[in-house]
């Protein structure tokens, strides 16, 4: 058995290619892009999916570095909410989040966050960071409350589905 394993190893050496790693915010931006592709809105977005970022300058910068075919803007006012399909919440202050709660209730938005406080209060998906990578968890009840449907691939790969 050891000989067989060594043979597989030797044969594989010639096939090998290099590893790729990424910085935290580029990875989060790409996750966001992929989440949108696995989401169904009640009326589907007419053109490009519109991403709005709230309190997340590092992610905005990452989007500008990446050549993803998306429409991204910093959400400066609640009035612009109707121009969003995906909302990334960078806020973690409980009182600030509470101020957004009423405006976001029932809106057909995919709300993603990368902190536990915002996920607990408002988020449908949370990006969870560990020392060596990023995973995500999903709240299905909240997805239903926002009238959106999450694809089976997304549910399959979520670390946790609540």
């Amino acid at each position: 058995m050891v000989k067989s394993m060594l043979l597989i190893l030797v044969c594989s050496l010639g096939l090998s290619l290099p590893l790729q790693a990424a910085d935290e915010f580029s990875l989060k931006a790409t996750f966001l892009y992929r989440f949108a592709q696995f989401t169904e809105w009640p009326p589907p977005p007419r053109g490009q999916i519109r991403f709005c970022l709230l309190g997340h300058p590092a992610l905005l910068e990452a989007f500008s570095r990446l050549s993803l075919p998306v429409d991204v803007k910093d959400l400066s006012s609640k009035k612009l909410l109707n121009q969003c399909d995906v909302l990334m919440l960078g806020l973690s202050d409980r009182q600030l989040l509470a101020q957004w709660q009423a405006d976001l209730a029932g809106t057909p938005l995919l709300i993603v966050t990368d902190n536990n406080e915002a996920y607990r209060q408002l988020g449908t998906i949370q990006l969870v960071t560990s020392p060596d990578g990023i995973s995500f968890q999903v709240n299905l009840q909240r997805a239903a409350a926002h009238q959106i449907k999450l694809g089976s691939q997304l549910l399959k790969l979520a670390r946790r589905v609540d």
Binding site: S26, L27, F31, L68, T129, I134, S135, L157
Partner: peptide, 27 residues
Amino acid sequence: AFGQSQETPSLEQLLNTPLTEIPTQIE
């Protein structure tokens, strides 16, 4: 590489991607 690829990595690929930086918010 991120941002230079013709094809955006899949969700599965993203889950397997190591970080080049020390993450800011470990749970």
